[in-house]
Design a protein around this nucleic acid. Sequence first.
DNA 1: AACGATGTTCAGAG
DNA 2: ACTCTGAACATCGT
Length: 260
Amino acid sequence: MPELPEVHGYQQYINKTCLHHTIVEMDVRDDRLIKKPLKEFKEVLLGEQWTSTERIGKYLFIHVSTGKIVVVHFGMTGRPNYYHESIERPRFGHIEITFDNGYKIAFENKRKFGWWDITDSVETYRKEHKLNRDARELTFEQFLDVAAHRKTAIKNVLMDQSVTTGVGNWIADDVLYQARIHPLKKANTLTRTELKTIYDKLQHVIEVAIDLEAQYKKFPEYFLIHNRKGRDYCYHTGDELEKIKVGGRTTYVSPEWQKL
DNA sequence: AACGATGTTCAGAG
DNA sequence: ACTCTGAACATCGT
């Protein structure tokens, strides 16, 4: 599930549950989910506390009382689950932290595309991994700087984490649907007005999704996301939606509504 | 039971 | 040096 709005929600959840408790254990079922040895994670975490969090796009940074920072990425299927130790460990809770209050945080990851890492500096990490500032904080001028000259399909540009950090497949589709721009249009052929519309819709989609806590069923009717699960016609034209591939990802388009 | 999936990364081409 | 494409990654649900 996790694109920017979901990860924002996960951040709030972790802030409410996990901060300022002493960590007494860490368990990892599959080493492929951690980018540093478990020994190193334990050195950083055991006996310490999580003190605060930051988020850039889909990346969550957890500050540790040691001064180190745990980087969490949820992949395609990750989510946190805070529960009491008397409850059975979740089936997909492949990484788990135990606190001294008897609660655990499970990092559930069904498809194992998520991971944890350790870093010293959010800013250094951001640059090394070519992340732009979070899509929510990006100004229109900054968006133009990184997007307007790109020669590839606008959808690819929106999904590029060095452009609009935090945007994933469904947000990109919804933004372009609401902006009435065909996802295959080359970014450098779009007018400033069209790019402004895309920028405005991007902010709108993110804010609505965050307000509604990323619960898709509650999204307004005009959101394309309803077409990913069930609805198969365009809300505006009534036409059947096309399912195409853009940048290797499944993409929904309303042909009359978003002309190429 | 083959295919697709809300993610990133990386090799290779241009 | 930069940009773009496509495949690989793991594995579950349909």
